[in-house]
Design a protein around this nucleic acid. Structure first.
Length: 563
RNA sequence: UGUCUUAUGGUGUAAUGGUAGCACUGCAGUUUCUGGAUCUGCCUGUCUAGGUUCGAAUCCUAGUAAGACAACCA
């Protein structure tokens, strides 16, 4: 039957898309749409940035506009080219292309000139008080501030001192340029905000030692947007109180109808996860994780190493939406997005993480058979491959119970199970060592039940994955769990080191996988039957094959046992 | 005892003054050469009180609650 999509509900627009469509309708800014992604190059991108990236680039793409990458590099003390490179790599990995790369540092001269103009207009002055004094004079949200004694100094004096701020003869911390606005404003950011401060002990990663006075965010960001022609300056909710100041600076200098507008959306929070750069840096520096790309980290490089595909990230971002209030997203939603995406593409492989020997006692010794098995039952075009069957096999230790409860459908004496892609076998017993540990399990196969044969349709309740002992290679498998064991570590008052989950990494060294996996590239993703989605770690060597578990499959049986 | 922002199931969101939908989670069932995946069904919601309106989740007022703001960070 021919189907049409007329009845399909159209995807609803978020409030930012609505605003953009309204602006377009009104012909604002000559119908131009321009956004920017403005990271400070002081750390690695994480999944919260991915949310912003998808919005900034997505809006531009959807409405025929452009999105530039701009590094907000106004604080040389914190920034480094290392971060510039990783940021560009991660954006590309997500599948986006910027129109241009800009740096706030490219505008240092322009910003300087405008600041001089502001001083000449009597709207900015040099303050020579200490940071502490200035802070004290600011008052508090409920107490008005008091004016600096330097506030009304002559313009010429400020002008001369501003020049000196940039020559290196003035010590760091002794002099700042402040905008003259309103020391009793109910908005703290209007109480004569600092526009320039001196940084002399760090070279800038692009301008070197050229500048000694550097502009502050509130001044530089809006003007950079303005210089570039940004129409929609999208940022997170904590900047709402900065918006009036953003607009104030724009108003001082704008000379046409064009103006950029700041709009704020909710930042991403995920349960059992910290998203602050400061805390992530601490995890790295204290060795609590192996690095920025530790698969337990919410960084894009960490998620990539863990096996999350760009599609999985996009799928997740599509699910969470953009609003004007903060919330916390369940980590389960991210995991669901990963499963949903990987399920469509991942090759199914047999892997035994906790092996025990299974001997098919009526199968001829020395005989081997090649059996075809599907690469992906969801996707016939993925084809099939052959796996080897023989008398001695490995199966999961958990797939056998000598004394099984009623609802145990796997291997137990007297019960029949299907070996995936092979035969139905009936368990006949097992061998134990002195301590009672299972050493070997025995079964008999039914030759008429080979996969695809007429008699193979017989119903059995359980199906197991397996590997021939002659056709398996050893591998190390790393299982990851949430890094924190409290739902909202960011909100918890305790030192976050006390909140860490001690079992966030389990390393299994005695696992077996199909031999062809040795030749696969790092980061390739697979589904191990019943245990989850895995990928090959970049640290893999010809001698040591290492897998990371991206995400586990949902295990109903485990739940059954917990009751 | 300030200013700003916000409030829809357990969670995340949609409804653009006109039938409160969707997704995740949970539960039940279907199906399966894995109990995963698939498919189906079910549970649970407009912060409170007034007002405007033929009609309010939506607009207004007040209250309540939450978050942001007092860096020479961004």
């Amino acid at each position: 039957m021919e189907t049409t999509n007329v009845d399909a509900p159209k995807k609803s627009l978020n409030f930012i898309e609505l605003m953009v469509e309204q602006d377009l309708k009104e012909g604002r800014n000559d119908g131009r749409i321009q956004t920017r992604f403005p990271p400070e190059p002081n750390g690695y991108l994480h999944i919260g940035h991915a949310k912003a990236i998808c919005l900034d680039f997505g809006i531009a793409k959807k409405y025929g506009g452009i999105c530039n990458l701009r590094f907000d590099d106004t604080n040389p003390a914190k920034e480094d080219v290392e971060y510039v490179d990783s940021i560009m790599e991660d954006i590309k990995w997500l599948g986006y292309e910027w129109k241009n790369v800009y740096y706030a540092s490219d505008y240092f001269q322009q910003l300087w000139d405008l600041a001089v103009q502001l001083i000449k207009d009597g709207k900015a002055y040099i303050d020579e008080q200490s940071a502490e004094t200035i802070a004290k004079q600011k008052g508090s949200p409920t107490v008005p501030g008091i004016e600096s004694p330097y506030r009304n100094r002559p313009v010429e004096e400020s002008l001369a001192l501003f020049e000196k701020m940039n020559t290196g003869e003035i010590a760091e911390g002794t002099m700042v340029l402040r905008a003259k606005i309103d020391m009793s404003s109910s908005n703290m950011h209007f109480r004569d905000p600092i526009m320039y401060r001196i940084i002399t002990d760090h070279p800038h990663h692009r301008t070197g030692w050229t500048w000694k006075a550097y502009p502050m965010y509130d001044y530089a960001h809006g003007q950079s947007d303005y210089f570039e022609g940004v129409t929609h300056s999208l940022c997170t909710l904590e900047f709402v109180v900065h918006r009036p100041l953003y607009d104030w600076f724009i108003d001082q200098f704008k000379d046409s109808d064009y103006r950029p507008r700041q709009t704020e959306f909710n930042r991403l929070n995920i349960t059992y996860t910290v998203m602050s750069k400061r805390k992530m840096l601490q995890l790295v520096e204290e060795g609590l994780v192996t690095g920025w790309d530790d698969p337990r980290m919410p960084t894009l490089c960490g998620l990539r190493r863990r096996g999350y595909s760009p599609d999985a990230i996009h799928n997740f971002i599509d699910k969470i939406g953009y609003t004007k209030y903060d919330g916390i997203n369940d980590i389960g939603l991210l995991e669901h997005a990963a499963r949903e995406t990987l399920n469509k593409t991942a090759t199914r492989v047999n892997a035994v993480l906790n092996p025990v020997k299974l001997i098919v006692t009526n199968y001829p010794e020395g005989q081997v058979e090649k059996l075809p098995t599907e690469n992906n039952p969801e996707d016939p075009s993925a084809g099939s491959r052959e796996i080897l069957f023989s008398r001695e096999l490995y199966i999961e230790r958990e797939d056998f119970m000598e004394e099984a409860p009623k609802k145990f459908f796997r291997m137990t004496p007297g019960q029949e199970v299907r070996l995936k892609s092979a035969y139905i076998v009936k368990c006949t017993g097992c061998k134990k060592d002195a301590e009672g540990n299972i050493e070997e399990i025995y079964c008999e196969y039914d030759p008429l039940t080979k996969s695809g044969m007429p008699d193979s349709g017989r119903k059995v309740k359980g199906t197991l994955h397996w590997l021939s002992t002659q056709n398996a290679v050893q591998a190390e498998v790393r299982l990851y769990d949430r890094l924190f064991n409290v739902e909202n570590p960011s909100a918890d008052e305790r030192d976050f080191r006390d909140l860490l989950n001690p079992d966030s990494l389990k390393v299994l060294t005695n696992c077996f996988v199909e031999p062809w996996l040795k030749n696969e590239k790092p980061l390739s993703g697979f589904q191990f039957q019943r245990t989850g989605y895995f990928n090959i770690d970049p640290d893999t060597t010809p001698e040591k094959l290492i897998f990371n578990r991206t995400v586990s499959l949902k295990d109903s049986w485990a739940k059954e046992q917990n009751r």
